[in-house]
Amino acid sequence: MDVIYTTYPIDMILEDKTQEYQFNFQDINYQGINMQVEPLEWNKFRVIRLYSTDPAHYLNNNLQPGSIISK
């Protein structure tokens, strides 16, 4: 029962491109901040995107997109 209301062509949205690109993203909570990461090796993650609403989190150098974190 989904109605998608968008300006994008629908086949662009629904086309599954997982065969072409390797997407391997996870949502985790690190230091109390929800973020999207890409797992690299054991206990190492690359930050893709923060979901936080706190502007202070985006100033944290250790959590800049692209930086590597480990739990």
Binding site: M1, I13, L14, E15, K17, T18, Y21, F23, F25
Partner: peptide, 18 residues
């Protein structure tokens, strides 16, 4: 606090990862 609404708003159906 700042909230960003970007890209597609995703609902009940998980959209392909691109």
């Amino acid at each position: 606090h700042c909230m960003t609404i970007v890209g597609q708003v995703e609902g009940h159906m998980i959209l392909p990862p691109q």
